[in-house]
């Protein structure tokens, strides 16, 4: 995707500024981009390593497995076809919990494993089953308690309250997930 968007952005911008005679501004942005990126990376560096370190501890405990119990009522509503106690059920619920905790490293492999085992139970192999579809939608909605990257960026830009938008984030992300689930449940009957 970026192989198309990236060159288009650059060519159009440079072409346009030559056309309107704005080439000085273009030069400035070319020469400043290195420093700008380094500054951001330096702050991200500390925060991302810090969270990755802390989350490694969480990944190595049974925390994720314990927390899957809390979401079991939601699981029954979302995935009625998947029986509790099966390997598929376990991967799906562990993927959801890892996403919520922001354990991206753990979430993706679990999610891929869940997809593969749902495919085994899928009747039409070339078409997503209802459970698979809902599972993907849940992953695109990404409910997350602590969005570490955003906090890191805000800190690096000198925010007075880097965590101020946590509650709007929870509201928006839960609202988005609910909207995704409702549309899926409705569309599922028609497509």
């Amino acid at each position: 995707m970026l192989n198309i968007i990236w060159p288009v952005f650059i060519i159009i911008s440079i072409g346009y500024s030559i056309l309107i005679g704005n080439i000085e501004a273009i030069n400035n942005s070319i020469f400043e981009v290195g420093e700008e990126t380094i500054n951001l990376i330096l702050t991200l560096f500390g925060t991302l390593c810090l969270w990755n370190g802390l989350m490694k501890i969480a990944e190595n405990t049974s925390l994720i497995e314990k927390l899957t119990k809390i979401i079991s009522p939601i699981m029954r509503f979302l995935f009625p076809e998947i029986k509790k106690g099966t390997e598929t059920y376990k991967s799906i619920s562990m993927n959801i919990v890892s996403n919520i905790l922001g354990l991206g490293n753990a979430a993706t492999p679990l999610g891929l494993k869940a997809m593969k085992s749902m495919q085994q139970e899928n009747k039409e192999k070339n078409k997503l089953s209802n459970s698979m579809a809902l599972f993907i939608i849940l992953n695109t909605a990404s409910i997350q308690i602590i969005p570490t990257t955003v906090i890191a960026v805000r800190t690096s830009l000198g925010s007075a309250e880097p965590t101020k938008m946590l509650i709007p984030i929870w509201g928006a992300t839960i609202g988005a997930a609910v909207a995704g689930i409702i549309s899926a449940k409705i569309l599922m009957k028609k497509f």
Partner: peptide, 19 residues
């Protein structure tokens, strides 16, 4: 799988609602 049914639509609805 290439037949993704309603997944893209539902996911984009979720994105718009989130925004």
């Amino acid at each position: 799988i290439k037949k993704i049914r309603f997944v893209l639509i539902a996911a984009l609805i979720a994105d718009v609602v989130g925004m």
